[in-house]
């Protein structure tokens, strides 16, 4: 049982990573990864919604009529997104203003509806929670890697809560392109190429 849950958790991190392999939930990943700090908040918000909606949807799967399941899933997801939206706005206004539209848009993040439809509506409660957690962590680690690379190259330093934790020093002239729009596509494409490269080596 434990081993089964563990495998559901791990697959989100590697072989079924939502961003790298399933290619879903890209918009928010590219848009918020300008700073490493932002990605942590965005990742946690999405993971919270993912785990809670997977939990509720797997609980109500027996009483959900098949024809109207999508609207029901969306209402469940939208309620949790509203919770995150209001909590962030109340307690972390600075972060909220930086993440902006991406918090309400978690509702239409394909990862969440996709997992609800493909996994939570068919499987048990514990498995669904493990799946949600794994997918969420898989989302976070890619997001954080991107945020880290883009902030470090684009600004020359990493700032966490107003404290510089890593810096190239003043003589480094940062290529600003990495925190601009093309940098997001470029970093993601190269990261993906790297993951493909490693996967191919492992398979050989």
């Amino acid at each position: 049982m434990i081993r089964k849950l563990w495998s559901e958790l791990v697959k989100g991190l590697t072989l079924e990573n939502p961003l790298m392999v399933l290619m879903i939930g890209l918009c928010s990943a590219l848009a918020v990864s300008t700073r490493a700090e932002n990605t942590i908040f965005m990742g946690l918000a999405a993971t919270f919604v993912l785990v809670s909606s997977n939990f509720i949807i797997s609980l109500i799967k027996k009483v959900t009529p098949n024809e109207i399941r999508i609207p029901i899933f969306i209402v469940v997801i939208a309620s949790f997104v509203t919770i995150v939206d209001l909590v962030l706005r109340a307690y972390f206004p600075v972060v909220y203003s930086r993440l902006g539209v991406w918090i309400p848009l978690i509702v239409v993040n394909c990862i969440i509806l996709g997992r609800a439809e493909a996994f939570a509506s068919k499987r048990g409660v514990l498995e669904s929670i493990a799946d949600g957690l794994g997918m969420g962590l898989g989302y976070i680690w890619i997001l954080f890697t991107m945020g880290f690379v883009r902030e470090l190259l684009g600004t020359g330093k990493i700032v966490f809560f107003d404290r510089t934790i890593l810096s190239f020093g003043p003589s480094f002239e940062p290529p600003v392109i990495f925190i601009l729009f093309p940098g997001a596509f470029l970093t993601f494409g190269l990261l993906m190429a790297f993951v493909n490269f490693v996967n191919r080596r492992i398979k050989k």
Binding site: M23, F181, P182, G183, A184, F185, L186, F188, G189, L190, M192, A193, N196
Partner: peptide
């Protein structure tokens, strides 16, 4: 997909 992202970067 990686090359598609790089093309998107150039378009952007």
């Amino acid at each position: 997909y990686p090359i598609v992202f790089i093309v998107a970067a150039l378009a952007s």
